[in-house]
Simulated assay, not measured.
Amino acid sequence: MQSNKTCPLVEQYLGYLVVIKGRSENTIKEYRTDLLMFFNFIMLSRNTPIINNNFAAVNVEFIKTISLNDMYSFIAYCQTELQASAGTRARKIVSIRQFWKYLKTKANLIENNIADELETPKIPKRIPKYLSLEESVRLLIQCQKSPRDHCIITIFLNCALRLSELASLNIEQVGNDVLTVIGKGNKERKIFLTPAAKKSINNWMQIRNTLNVNTKALFISRNSGQITTRAVQNIVKKYVLAAGLDPKTISAHKLRHTAATLMYKYGRVGMRSLQLILGHESIATTEIYTHIDEKQLQSAVNSNPLAMMFN
């Protein structure tokens, strides 16, 4: 849904992202927010009034007056005033860079792309939080009484889907052996179903087929419509609490981390295979799942032949 704050140039760019690049609704929303926040910052710094929430003043002439220093001032403002994380600041920089690139190379509205020089902050690599095998089993046991919820948790832990991917699943995406997933940028990928996932889906489908619903959605909400991402988050939280786990650190997204980690740790899955399963555009994103747990680190240290030399 379009914001009530509009900028013709930005909307032109976002239209290009939807039609030509096939970007998702969430991506469009983030780009719009980032760019309007940036222009709002520039206009306020120049005492230029924003009339009726309208950014029509942000035209090509206005764009040409913006300097690289203005861009860095905005990122500094995000860091100091908004306490934005390095990841959030990096995303805003990408939004600005991509918009300027479009203005130069696609729309041919500017001659110089000063945003090319805009550097992104170094983002610290964090080991993703995930459930151990024992914790995963505890979670699955807790939701056994609800075929729908058990199917949701099982698919997360077996297929490593994103929250949005799982919530938007339709019946026709479920095959006998394969799950067809529509990921970021409307890219399609296929994930082989494990025996546990197949059984869980069959159990839920037996119940779903008895329901009088007018939707192709795989997972049905209480009001007989397609389940929302918020509802899925609440379902995960409910069973995380029931399993005695911490809901502050374990979310639906962490179940995706868990599936990827268990595949890598126990299945000796290669990076390329894991990248395809997770639907990552860059293998660098997949590499966060190659973290090694503390027991493996301890084992590696103790494998040193000098480890038992006391004298």
Rank of each mutant, 00 (worst) to 15 (best):
D149A: 00
R138T: 02
R138S: 14
C143I: 05
I127T: 13
E135K: 08
Y130N: 07
K145H: 15
L157V: 01
R138D: 13
R138I: 04
S146Y: 07
L140V: 10
S136D: 07
V137K: 14
P128S: 08
R126Y: 10
E135N: 07
T154W: 06
C143S: 11
V137S: 07
C151V: 05
R126L: 14
L133E: 12
I153N: 02
I141A: 03
R126F: 12
E135G: 03
E134W: 05
C143N: 01
Q142L: 00
P124V: 04
K125N: 12
I141K: 11
L140N: 09
S136V: 01
S146F: 03
S136T: 15
C151W: 01
I152R: 02
I141F: 03
L133W: 05
I127E: 15
P128M: 11
L139E: 01
L140C: 02
N158T: 10
L157F: 11
I127Y: 10
R148L: 11
S136H: 03
V137Y: 05
K129H: 13
L140A: 05
D149Y: 00
N158G: 15
L157Q: 11
K129I: 13
I123Q: 12
L133G: 02
Q142K: 12
I127P: 06
K125V: 13
N158C: 12
P128R: 08
R138E: 14
S136F: 06
I152A: 05
F156M: 07
F156P: 03
Y130L: 06
I155E: 07
L133T: 09
R126N: 13
L131R: 00
L133I: 14
Q144W: 08
R148Q: 12
F156V: 00
R138N: 14
I153D: 02
I123L: 11
L140D: 08
L140K: 07
P147A: 05
H150Q: 12
K125P: 01
L157K: 04
P147G: 03
H150W: 08
I152F: 04
C143K: 06
Q144N: 10
I153Q: 01
L140Q: 10
Q144T: 11
Q144K: 12
I123Y: 06
P124D: 15
Q144C: 07
L157E: 12
D149E: 10
R126Q: 15
I152S: 08
Y130H: 14
I153M: 13
H150D: 07
I141T: 06
K129A: 13
I153G: 06
I123P: 01
N158F: 09
P147V: 10
F156W: 11
D149I: 00
L139R: 03
L139A: 08
P124E: 15
L133D: 03
E134S: 09
L140S: 09
I123W: 05
T154S: 14
I123S: 04
C143V: 04
R148H: 06
R138Q: 13
R138W: 11
K125F: 14
S132W: 04
R148S: 04
D149S: 03
K145G: 11
L139S: 07
K125S: 09
C151H: 01
L139M: 07
E134R: 08
L139C: 05
Q144E: 15
I127W: 06
E135H: 09
L140M: 15
K145E: 15
H150V: 01
P147I: 02
S136P: 00
